[in-house]
Design a binder for these strands. Structure first.
Length: 568
RNA sequence: GCGCCCAUAGCUCAGUGGAUAGAGCAACGGUCUUCGGAACCGCAGGUCGGGGGUUCGAGUCCCUCUGGGCGCGCCA
């Protein structure tokens, strides 16, 4: 299937070249020619403003230039009419015959509708979620989960070969606390006296469940054990839980990358050595340029290893190896990104919460110091989510208790609702998740509005079958203006995929889905296929149209990771 | 104080430097002896936070101010 903006742009380009050959336009370097749907439908299906850009270099008024370009436009099957208007727009209208024929193309492409080849099979990796297995997934994390998975789906549709990766750390203090918390719950479930620590204790109910299972499996065998075996047990269970939660929203990672492997293969220390060789590391108990206060605080500390990130524009140097000679999170994170780059991906996408921005900058400085080319690396920063219930704002936190896990949210709404609401906002914007609205199964909830379009198509075919009618051998010339308007919108899907994949802006598909549905429902209302007074040939053509519509909705819903229900 | 993000209709938000700034919800008024109404139609709603600048053209780019979010740890 063709991308219409690009196809039109090529026509304009050829027209300009032809005009130059004919001497109607002077010679100049071709600008990037952009063609897009105008805001107002009366202005055409696609519009090009290149003549305005050319007015200055060519030294003529834009309207004349546009008219000249129009004169030299080559023929194309998809072009119905061309018009040059006011300041210098060239407006295109799609051929209606060509549009009608697209109904068959859409049906033929089916689940692969607008499967593009922009990625040309290049390898892309999307890293997202990446929560350590210390607890269930929270809503704050889940926005990144949905955005990351949808970006992966869009990249696949754009023609990339995509891997989904989850980076985690199962070492460190938090995991030790988790193991210790489980140990206490385990002893408690055996009826032994325990003391719940004030700090570093995980309160969650899930640990009581784990403890109960562990006690049932092991009896009193672990009464004298330290935190270690408990940590291992908790980690295993926790990951199973996280995976199960993600699967509920149709997210499956291909690779779980353990931070520890970067120590096992020594790459963390190799990275450090290379930075040292480059002269980017110094040893000191306090960073260079520190305030008196900081210096006083650091008095008596053993020297740490500092990275001169200020050389790359950072506000201050960062510690890579602490006084106790263990690395900070930053060092393995740099090593991880080196690892990613060396795996040869053409595109690396990293989904991060807004609070990780600074950390990521330091990683980039590290890569720069190591002389890696960071161009494949793209970061999508996700702004925070606020949960709203009864008009009240509940702030999200990965350490808060209560009711804000992704599982809870799915339980209270549905996987589809969660996916759509978390998706339908620019990642740059803060997101208010209105629980009351999400729970409502009414037209206030856009999720059902979109899915209902698919349901209605499915319903038509159930009914058609019952009445013994089919859409075989349809005469598509019988389709009217309403149907064509909808088909035009379906054909914009390619642009939406291309653009949202290129810009890593998956919310665009969500808005498109709603726009498509809002063209569908009025059409469904007026364009009847199975009414008694509809002639058979018209009914057949319309059924064929609804077949194409169903294909489009299914494709769009699947691109968003949502289900395309047959009934609701 | 420094860095990043945000500010558009009453509310929640779209808006790739192009033409008269758009949806949904809420509010108001209508439609239907339904291929499943979680629908459709209409009406109304705006100094695009303020001020400068760049451009043939700015909600969009630059500067600045104001207001909000996040970060600025030898935590991860």
């Amino acid at each position: 299937m063709i991308l219409l903006p690009q196809a039109h742009a090529q026509l304009v380009e050829k027209a300009i070249q032809a005009a130059q050959v004919a001497g109607d336009l002077p010679t100049f370097d071709l600008p990037v020619i952009e063609v897009r749907p105008p805001k107002r439908a009366e202005q055409g299906d696609y519009s090009c403003a290149v003549a305005m850009q050319l007015a200055k270099p060519v030294g003529r008024n834009p309207f004349d230039i546009a008219a000249t370009i129009e004169k030299h436009l080559p023929d194309a099957a998809f072009v119905g009419a061309v018009e040059t208007v006011k300041p210098g727009f060239i407006n295109f209208r799609l051929s209606e015959d060509w549009l009608r024929a697209q109904v068959e193309t859409i049906i033929a492409e089916g689940d692969k509708l607008f499967q593009l080849d922009i990625g040309q099979g290049k390898r892309a990796q999307v890293e997202f979620v990446s929560a350590n297995p210390t607890g269930p997934l929270h809503i704050g994390r889940s926005r990144g989960a949905i955005v990351g998975d949808t970006i992966a789906r869009l990249l696949e549709a754009a023609g990339y070969s995509v891997e989904r990766e989850y980076y985690f750390n199962n070492a460190g203090m938090q995991m030790q606390s988790l193991g210790n918390s489980l140990r206490i719950r385990y002893l408690e479930s055996l009826g032994l006296p325990v003391e719940i620590p004030q700090e570093g204790f995980y309160q969650g109910e899930y640990l009581k469940d784990f403890a109960g299972e562990l006690a049932a499996e092991q009896g009193k065998a672990l009464v004298d054990a330290d935190w270690q075996p408990f940590k291992e047990y908790a980690e295993k269970k926790m990951f199973a839980m996280i995976r199960a939660t993600l699967e509920r929203v149709d997210i499956i990672h291909d690779i779980f990358f353990n931070e520890n492997s970067l120590y096992d293969d020594n790459s963390v220390w190799q990275v450090l050595a290379k930075l040292e060789q480059g002269g980017y590391i110094y040893e000191s108990s306090v960073r260079e340029g520190a305030s008196e206060e900081e210096t006083a605080k650091a008095a008596g500390l053993e020297p740490a290893k500092w990275f001169r990130s200020t050389q790359f524009g950072d506000n201050e140097d960062r510690v890579l190896v602490k006084s106790d000679r263990t690395p900070t999170y930053t060092l393995p994170d740099i090593a991880y990104h080196v690892n990613k780059l060396e795996r040869g991906f053409d595109l690396l996408v990293n989904i991060l919460g807004a609070d990780h921005y600074t950390q990521h900058q330091v990683v980039r400085y590290g890569l720069k110091a190591l002389r890696y080319d960071p161009t494949p690396l793209h970061v999508v920063i996700i702004q925070f989510v606020r949960l709203i219930r009864g008009g009240e704002i509940l702030k999200m936190s990965t350490r808060a208790g209560a009711i804000d896990t992704l599982d809870d949210l799915i339980d209270q709404t549905s996987a589809d609702v969660v996916r759509y609401i978390l998706l339908a906002r620019s990642p740059d914007s803060h997101l208010d998740f209105d629980l009351d609205l999400a729970v409502k199964q009414s037209n206030e909830n856009p999720v059902y509005y979109i899915q209902n379009a698919h349901v209605r198509c499915a319903g038509i075919f159930r009914e058609a079958e019952a009445r013994g009618k089919s859409d075989d051998d349809a005469d598509l010339s019988l389709l009217g203006a309403d149907e064509l308007r909808f088909i035009r919108k379906v054909l914009e899907l390619g642009e939406v995929i291309e653009q949202s994949a290129r810009e890593l802006a998956p919310h665009k598909i969500a808005f498109y889905a709603h726009e498509l549905a809002s063209l569908f429902h009025p059409t469904y209302d007026t364009v009847r296929a199975l009414h008694g007074d509809i002639p058979d040939d018209v009914a057949t053509a319309r059924l064929r149209f609804y077949r194409a519509a169903q294909v489009a909705f299914k494709r769009v819903l699947r691109l968003m990771g949502m289900t395309a229900p047959e009934r609701m």
